[in-house]
């Protein structure tokens, strides 16, 4: 018998020997676009980390280090930096794990669960970043008030003129405005970048929910 005909005989015989894929699984496959969104979250988080690292690398000149030293917060800032890197790396790892698990899931239910988990991770990530920025900002502010020579000279002058209260009110007002602006800009950045991806992820989730009912 010719080779191909032998193959054909077997081909026909085993025509129905495949593992059956359910409609649910097909739906899950069609909604795998979530995996590409989650992949982008993973990639952007890495790019973001690289960008911040580059910025701090290029701005951390001798002057900056001297300032930190005169503020007595060099160790503190270094500790913060180390902790920050550890946490950011953990988040990146989590993003990667989310991507992997969404990529390999084949049921609508677990896909939905993974989408929700990913959204939570991103939200925690954003909150972490905002809080960290806030802590560093406040630390810098307090250190400036206590240790900065020029600042102390200025406050001394105001206090000498009995305008200490006014001075501190001004500083407080300035701090609040500047802090609000600073955190606000960063919050806006996160909302734009991750918010866009999260909205698309959520839309996909809503579609999946309709299927699952």
């Amino acid at each position: 018998m010719e080779e191909l005909d032998l193959l054909k005989k077997d081909w026909k015989k085993n025509e129905h020997s495949f593992p059956k894929i359910t409609e649910q699984e097909i739906y899950a496959m069609l909604h795998k676009k979530s995996s590409s969104i989650v992949k982008w979250i993973f990639i952007i988080s890495i790019l973001e980390m690289i960008a911040w690292s580059l910025i701090s690398f290029f701005t951390a000149d001798e002057n900056y280090l001297k300032t930190l030293e005169s503020y007595h917060i060099k160790t503190l800032v270094t500790t913060f930096t180390v902790i920050n890197y550890i946490v950011i790396f953990s988040f990146i790892f989590l993003f990667y794990r989310n991507f992997k698990s969404i990529n390999t899931t084949d049921s609508v239910k677990s896909l939905m669960k993974n989408i929700l988990k990913t959204r939570k991770t991103v939200q925690y990530y954003i909150w972490y970043n905002l809080v960290m920025i806030g802590i560093i900002f406040i630390t810098m502010m307090v250190a400036t008030c206590i240790y900065d020579e020029r600042f102390n000279r200025m406050s001394g002058q105001f206090e000498g003129n009995d305008q200490g209260m006014l001075f501190w009110m001004m500083i407080l007002g300035f701090t609040i405005v500047f802090f609000g602006l600073f955190v606000g800009v960063i919050w806006l950045f996160y909302r734009l970048v991750y918010g866009f991806l999260l909205r698309r992820l959520y839309k996909n989730y809503e579609e999946l929910k309709k299927i699952d009912l």
Binding site: E15, I21, E23, L30, K32
Partner: peptide, 30 residues
Amino acid sequence: VSQLEQHQNIIHKICRLYTSDEDSHKDLFQ
């Protein structure tokens, strides 16, 4: 989805010729 589910064998058969392990079979199917 319902038509594909019904006629999925045709895709399985193509995967059988183009892949040689379970994972790539699944990948190609998807």
